[in-house]
Simulated assay, not measured.
Amino acid sequence: MTITDSRPRTATTPDIRVVRRRLGPGRRIPYAFWIGPLLLLAVWSAGSATGLISPAILTAPWDVVVAFGEQWTDHDLLGNILSSLNRAALGLGFGIAVGGVLAVVSGLSRIGESLIDGPIQIKRSVPTLALIPLFIAWFGIGQEMKIVTIALISLVPIYVHTHNGLRSIDGKYAELAETIDIGRAEFVRHIVLPGALPGFLLGMRFAVTSSLLGLVVVEQYNATAGIGHMITLAEQYGQTDVIVVGLVIYGVFGYCADSAVRLVGRRVLAWRRTLED
Rank of each mutant, 00 (worst) to 15 (best):
residue 161 H to A: 07
residue 221 Y to K: 08
residue 50 T to W: 03
residue 126 V to T: 15
residue 163 H to V: 05
residue 17 R to K: 15
residue 84 S to I: 03
residue 259 S to K: 15
residue 171 G to V: 09
residue 140 G to C: 04
residue 272 R to F: 09
residue 79 G to E: 00
residue 270 A to N: 14
residue 133 P to V: 06
residue 221 Y to T: 12
residue 95 G to M: 02
residue 193 L to R: 12
residue 55 P to S: 08
residue 125 S to D: 13
residue 26 G to Q: 00
residue 114 S to R: 14
residue 261 V to P: 04
residue 84 S to M: 01
residue 6 S to T: 08
residue 107 G to L: 03
residue 209 T to W: 06
residue 128 T to K: 14
residue 179 T to W: 10
residue 230 M to F: 09
residue 88 A to F: 00
residue 244 V to L: 13
residue 154 S to C: 11
residue 203 G to K: 03
residue 113 E to R: 14
residue 43 V to W: 03
residue 143 Q to S: 12
residue 268 V to E: 04
residue 184 R to T: 14
residue 216 V to T: 08
residue 140 G to V: 02
residue 96 I to R: 03
residue 26 G to E: 02
residue 77 L to H: 02
residue 32 A to H: 14
residue 169 I to F: 01
residue 109 S to F: 04
residue 152 L to K: 03
residue 163 H to I: 03
residue 133 P to F: 07
residue 11 A to C: 08
residue 75 H to K: 08
residue 34 W to S: 11
residue 121 Q to K: 10
residue 39 L to V: 15
residue 49 A to C: 09
residue 239 Q to K: 07
residue 11 A to P: 00
residue 194 P to A: 08
residue 13 T to C: 04
residue 94 F to P: 11
residue 128 T to E: 12
residue 149 T to V: 07
residue 269 L to Y: 03
residue 159 Y to F: 09
residue 276 E to P: 09
residue 206 F to K: 02
